[in-house]
Amino acid sequence: MLALAFDTATDACTVAIGTEDKLYGEFTMYAPRAHMERLIPMVDYLLKQSDFSIGDIRGLTVGLGPGSFTGVRIGVATAKILAQALNLPLVGISTLDCLAYPFTFGEELVCVVLDAKRGEVYSAIYRCLGGKFDLITPYQVMPPRDLCSKLKEYKQRVILVGDALYPYGDLLKNSLGSSVDFAPPWLWFPKASNLIALAMDKLLGGEGKEIFQVVPIYVRLSEAEGKVGRAPTCRGRAGPPNGRAGREGKFFPWKPLKSPG
């Protein structure tokens, strides 16, 4: 089955086309806050260069996050509408699973860490064995120090991978010492070919028909839901509070009625 995959949950924009036994092409770019401009042109380029057209695709898979709220929505909305318009099955895969996949052939613990901003990381821990992996924690968000304490409990070598190693690599290394190994940096961002590998059995098994039900994995509540009562809202003419994609989570401070004048 020819499948198209993409993930836009991190600073990388990654697209791949492949079947159950062949990767036809993959295109990954470091493109922070540029997913809206890049995604469809990258899909189009990859299809053209591999002599396919969008009509040849028989299945879709997309990275669901967690990651940038705005980024992940661009990928998920694009995938859901493609699935609806072309009547294709769509299987969503966690971006954390996508990052863990290359390590499944070892026999170690793998911990994926993505930068969740605001001093926290998204993480998940996997036990790998002979090409399969078990997710042994929920997808969660926490400060990197809390993750260190959790990892120490395993008393086992852990491979760390993910873009949170850029800001927090030193902190993790200093705290965990020789019990952790960092994956090489070119594996720290997701690659869409891994989504195809993870989704293919489900697509071949007839899953992915309920496309309306596909939603991003946010892990975090929206900031407003997290503190109901101190409602940050935005309805002003100034447009959005946060201005740019990828800097989600900062809302307009609620302006009190006692404005000057």
Binding site: A77, S222, A224, E225, A231, T233, C234
Partner: peptide
């Protein structure tokens, strides 16, 4: 919340579009 919360609006759009 007494007003439009941008993040909630965006999340609903993905579900409803």
């Amino acid at each position: 919340f007494g007003g439009v919360v941008p993040e909630i609006a965006s999340r609903k759009h993905v579900e409803l579009i």
